[in-house]
Structure formats: C-alpha cells, structure tokens
Design a protein around this nucleic acid. Structure first.
Lengths: 330, 330
DNA sequence: AAGGCTGCTTGACATTTGTCATCAGCCGGA
DNA sequence: TCCGGCTGATGACAAATGTCAAGCAGCCTT
C-alpha cells in the first residue's frame, strides 16, 4: 500500500457566465490572460492543479492559445535555412528587407555591412588570416566593424589595386578593415588589371607579388561581394572596364563578377578580353579557402548572386530577405 | 563569506550564421521553435541557464514571441465582460456568431439553448425553484438540457398557457424542462390572455391560480426569452395577438416583449389593449426574482434585447457574438 | 591610475510546471 | 446485481523555470 494521502473530495466551482460549461477556456483565460499560476487557477476552478495542467495542454492542442514568433523574423530564419540547404552553404544570414522595391541602396549596403560584421566575427580568432576583396559592400563592412584589436590577425588584400572607386578600391577596403580590427594589413603592390599577358606574367615573377599570392593561399577566411552585370552597369575603371569590354563578356553569357572574374549563370569562369591580364586571387584559389563569406543583396544582383552560389564560391551568405526569397524560389 | 562555488569561466559559442550577433533570437528559436529546454539552450549557447531565461523574457518583452488566444474566443469573452459592465449584469455568455447575415435561425436557437443550459446549470441546486417562460428559445433550451435528476427541484410555469405555437407554449416548455431535469412541474391552469379584466380578476381569485402566483414569487431563478416587435412580426395566437393589437402597441413605442408584457425602448411597460387581461408573472415580480437568465440572440431581436437589458429585467444574458457586438456599441 | 557607476552574467534557491501511475466514477454487458 | 473496461481526475515526484543578490567587466569621471 502506498502512503498517498486520502483523495480530497472536490466541489468544482461553477464558472462565470462568460465561460459557462467550458472549464478549459476558463482555465486558459485565468492562466494566459490574467497571468495566474496553475495553482491559483486550480483553486479558483476547484480542481486539482494537475487537471489545470491538463486543461492548458488541451487548450494548446486545440489551438485556443498559440505561441507565435514575429512572422518576419521567422521567415528570415527559415529563408536562411532554405538558402543554406539549397546552395549547400554552411550558413546564410538574412537581414530584413526594407519595404518594397529597389529602395535605398546605400542603406541596404550599410545594413549588410553590420550583419556581415556579425557573421565575420566568430571567424576572426587570433592566428586567423582574413582575405578581403573590394567593392562598396566591402566598404560598408569595414565601416560597420567595431574598432578592436585582435592579436596576430592578418588582413590580406586578395586582388590587385585600383579597381572600383576611390573608396571602394581593394587597397582601401583591406586597409580600412585591418585598421578596424587592429590587424596587420598586407597589400598587393600591383594593379588589378594590366595591358598585356606578358606584363602580368612578368609581375607575377616579382618577389613581392609572388609572396602576396602565396599569402592569399594561407587565408583562413575571405570576405567578398558580388558585382552584377547587365547593359546598364558602368565601372569607374575607365582604362580597362570599358563599355566595349563589358559587352564582350555579356555576349558570352557573363552574369556576375566575383573578385574581378566574370562568371556565367552557373558560376563557370568566362574567358574574355581581360583573361590573362588580371592580378589577384583566382577562382580556384578562392574555392580553396576554408571559409568564404559572400555579402551581397538587392534584387539587381539577384542573377549574379545566384551565379556565385551555383559556382560554389561561398560557404556563407549574407543577404536581404527580398533577394533571399527569390534565390530560394529558383 | 558565502559558500557559492567558483564562477565558471564560459566561452560563449558563436551562433549559426542565421542568428549572427543576436543571442536573444538564437535562444528564442531553440526554445520556442525547436522546443528545447532552457538548460539545453544554455549549453548550446555556452551561457548560464539564468541568462537564457533572461534572453527569453527579453524576447517576450520585445514581442519577438507572443502568446495569442484564439481571437474569436478572446473577443467573445471580452464581449461578455463588456455586456455585463454596460448593462450591470452579473454575467453574460456570448456564443460564436455563425458567419454573417441573418443565417440559420433554428440553428442559432439550438446553440443558444445549449449555451443556456450551461449557464443555467450552476443555479439548479436542490431546493432551487426554476421559473420558465415560453417561446422557441425556451423550447431549444429544454431540448438542450441533458436528462438528469435534480432532487427537490421544482419547475414553475410563470405565465398562463397557450401562448405561442403548440410546442413553444408555456405549458409545454415548462413540462419539457421539468422532465429533462427530473423535477416536479407546477403549471398554470389558466389561459395567458382572457377577454376581459373581469374575467382575469375572477380567475386570480381562484385558489389554484392564486397559489401558482404565489409559487412564482418563490422562484430562485427564472429563464426567459425575448420577443421582437415590428411591423413584420406575426403571432400564432390569432385570438388576441392580432395585427391590429400589435399595431396599437407599436404606435405607443413598443420595442419588445418579455414574459408576455410589452415594453418600450428603455424597458418601461406599455399599457395597451391587453392591459389587465393577462395572467402570469408581472414585470415587478420578474424583477424581484434573484436570478433572471435571459436567452436571446439574432440581430432581429437587437432592439428588443436592448430594451430588456435597459429595463434591468435580466441578471444574466446568453446571446450571440454579432448581437453582443451591437449591444455594447449602443 | 583609481574609483565609482552601469549593465550584463551567474549560481543558488524557491516556485512553478509536466508527467505518470493510480484511482474514482460511470457505462454496458452478463 | 455484479463485473470489467474506460474516461477523466488526482497526488506525488522530478524536471523546468523565474528570481535574486552578488559578481564581474567595461566605461566614464576624477
């Protein structure tokens, strides 16, 4: 025989009129709406607390109460999951899409930068080597990074200099990011594009350049953006990226630009006027880097981002919800 | 000095990419979406369980997660509260409104009957005396009552017989309800309306009739419906409730009928062709009853119900959501 | 640098909650 | 009338949770 105490006879109380005949609803109301404890509710209903617990789980089962997450947030998390699944990424971070339409690009870049800095952070232990590409999104990343000092961190510029506008040039981006992280910055002392294959080959034989290319191979993580490519795009690099040049690549099916290389819709490199004249990390070397964080958003870049992901160039992606939605739909 | 154990150094884990930089979101996801315990979450985030508890309450405070009640249900409960407040009732029970428009009246009555039986139940202890009016809603109440046996319960017919259709007549309603409750039924052995005042006065002097009127005063609870009144309404009592009679009352501002009495918009009794010729509980006697449960719904009865409530004839109301909404709006 | 202040984190503890075997009441069949 | 099975409620217990004072780190002021 157990030592259980004698079962108390209970006289269930009659519910207030508004809950007539429905103890489950009554209990639910007292618990969820009035914030009472199950013990209090049990006392008010005149039943055991265990019964109240049962009523409440019944109410949840019936869907009378439900716990909802912010749908926006939920969607973003699931978009991130879906992206990672769809493109075999290690992870994807989706930031809120501001309103509709192609609204405020600078703001989008700023927010991508903030998110990117969060995604980047865990990969920046000491002894880490961070490769940095170039572009306005990378600039935004640099601006978003908090000032700190990560001991023994190295920042490596992964492509030759003077591509892009003044501020978003490779040398500036890597310098800015290195400064913010309190890291040593190792720059490329060569242009990104030269006039001839011969010139490139000669430069590659230069000890400083060769060393930089070796350093690139030691990168533990690399961050890069994506350049979109269509008839309307113009580059602030008048010497080589002329309208003419771009058109040639477009004719061959170029869909986007990663670290200065033109790729088609599935991520294959496209030969063209610039082939053999570029100095900087190649697509093979990129893919050989352990962590490759791609930061890019905005629907204009949709096709380009898709190309990058299809090519397997990224292990992680930071993008906005609107773009993410389109990406998983394809 | 306390005996508290040395504080463990913790190394917070870095979040998956999709939650980059937001431990609160990460914790929330693991806890609410994946259903893990706080301890598990704490282990995964690499923080103490107490911190997880803090994160979660932060998430709730920020509204990232919310517990929602079925809005329909919530509205009904609050309508009940509002009705009780607005009309100084002890309580009001609001049942769901089926769809829009004046849909299915028999179904509405059936559901009102079910709800009414639940509201009535707690008032039916032994020694209780239940007064029963008449009408199709009372009939529905009778049909909804479960068969049972309440010892020493008495059911009292509160107005004279043969008003309303065959089945919804006072004598049938009280008999049905008494049968269902296993109670003794005390009927009125007189018509509800007679031809002259003299006849009524004479009947009131009859011992059986007088005794029944005394019994009415002993009622501990009375259930009644509400009759709407407009140009279109027709009664199945051709002898007295002629179109002509109804018109007379309408001219005087009659808005509804309670237990056979005509009342205006604020619940005052209206003198008219039937004055002094009715046999049954009067409005004063009704108001003297401790518990007065009014069961009535449907927008056609809106004005009539409002009149009844304004007159203070009910202590409790059972109605539908659509009607309740209109009632609290006035 | 020292010191105070603020905000976040933590371990400990009391409370609250979920669960499970058990039990009373009820129904239907023998 | 008895009996067996079924449903829903209960007490007890273990697990999960909320809360608090104390601790620590960063930051600003002095």
């Amino acid at each position: 025989m157990t030592t259980s105490q004698a079962r108390l006879p209970r006289t269930p109380n009659s519910p207030p009129t508004e809950f007539a005949g429905d103890a489950v609803t009554w209990a639910m109301w007292l618990y969820y709406a009035e914030g009472r404890t199950q013990s209090e509710v049990a006392q008010m209903l005149g039943v055991s607390r265990a019964s109240v617990a049962n009523y409440l789980s019944e109410a949840r089962r019936r869907g009378l109460v439900s716990i909802n997450m912010e749908p926006e947030l939920l969607a973003r998390v699931e978009l991130g999951r879906a992206l990672a699944e769809r493109f075999a990424l290690e992870g994807a971070h989706v930031i809120p899409a501001r309103g509709e339409g192609e609204s405020d690009l600078p703001d989008l870049r700023r927010r991508l930068g903030v998110a990117g800095s969060e995604v980047l952070r865990p990969h920046l232990g000491r002894e880490a080597v961070l490769g940095v590409a170039w572009g306005r999104t990378m600039l935004a990343l640099g601006q978003a990074l908090p000032e700190q000092t990560i001991p023994d961190l190295r920042v490596v510029q992964v492509s030759g200099s003077s591509l892009g506008g003044e501020e978003s040039s490779p040398e500036f981006c890597s310098a800015l990011i290195a400064t913010r992280l309190g890291a040593r910055c190792q720059n490329f002392h060569a242009p990104a594009i030269v006039s001839t294959r011969e010139m490139r080959d000669a430069l590659l034989r230069e000890p400083g350049i060769a060393r930089q290319l070796e350093r690139i191979k030691t990168c533990s993580v690399i961050v890069f953006g994506v350049g979109e490519l269509d008839e309307a795009v113009v580059f602030s690099e008048p010497d080589f990226l002329t309208q003419e040049t771009v058109s040639r690549y477009l004719e061959k099916g170029a869909t986007g630009i990663v670290i200065g290389r033109f790729i088609d819709a599935v991520g294959a490199e496209i030969e063209g006027p610039l082939s053999g004249r570029q100095i900087g990390i190649g697509l093979q070397a990129l893919r050989a880097t352990p962590e490759r964080i791609c930061i890019a958003g905005g629907l204009r870049k949709l096709a380009a981002i898709q190309a990058v992901l299809s090519g397997g160039f990224a292990t992680r992606l930071v993008t906005d919800a609107a773009t993410a939605r389109k990406l998983v739909e394809t």
